[in-house]
Design a protein around this nucleic acid. Sequence first.
DNA 1: CATATTTATACGACTTGGCGTATATTATTA
DNA 2: TAATAATATACGCCAAGTCGTATAAATATG
Lengths: 83, 83
Amino acid sequence: MDQIARTPKQIGDALRRRRRTLKLTQKDLGAKTSLRQATISGLEGGEPGTQLRTLFDAMTALNLEFVIRPRTKAQAEDIETLF
Amino acid sequence: MDQIARTPKQIGDALRRRRRTLKLTQKDLGAKTSLRQATISGLEGGEPGTQLRTLFDAMTALNLEFVIRPRTKAQAEDIETLF
DNA sequence: CATATTTATACGACTTGGCGTATATTATTA
DNA sequence: TAATAATATACGCCAAGTCGTATAAATATG
């Protein structure tokens, strides 16, 4: 259930899943965070230029938190990038 | 040992702890990531405008990963901000 | 299938990050 | 304490994020 993320893309995927679980649209989340729907779109799309401010505004609105830890075993997506 | 982070500041603190554990200077980490020492300084200082690109470059170089999960009980620092 | 909803993309304007470079400040160590 | 190392800050420059607004594209719903 908890998501592991090592890339902006994976962060975006996790946020999107969470948003949908909460039955919110990007516009809804934008209202909660004072961010544009377009900005939420970029965040969920994994744009690496997105700012931490934007990320944490969304995290707060979605009631999420990070755990930061040393990397565990190789993840599926990492392995795929080898080929 | 694992760090919980809900703000850019907390992320910065965790990265700094990790860097020091690995006996690296900001300059060392900058070399590993092709980022300036000044940029690492900003990241560790919790500047909310820092980009995800920068964060994840550092995460990779420090061999860290995120776990994203619903917020658990109130954390000490959050409680402090109530007063 | 038609319509409504949701999400992605576009434009100009403004703001800010990260760059190279340099220096000031702080912390470490001899 | 003096010298050294590490970190924070500054300046001009360029690239890019976010803004408001709008629309195109994709998805969901009747």
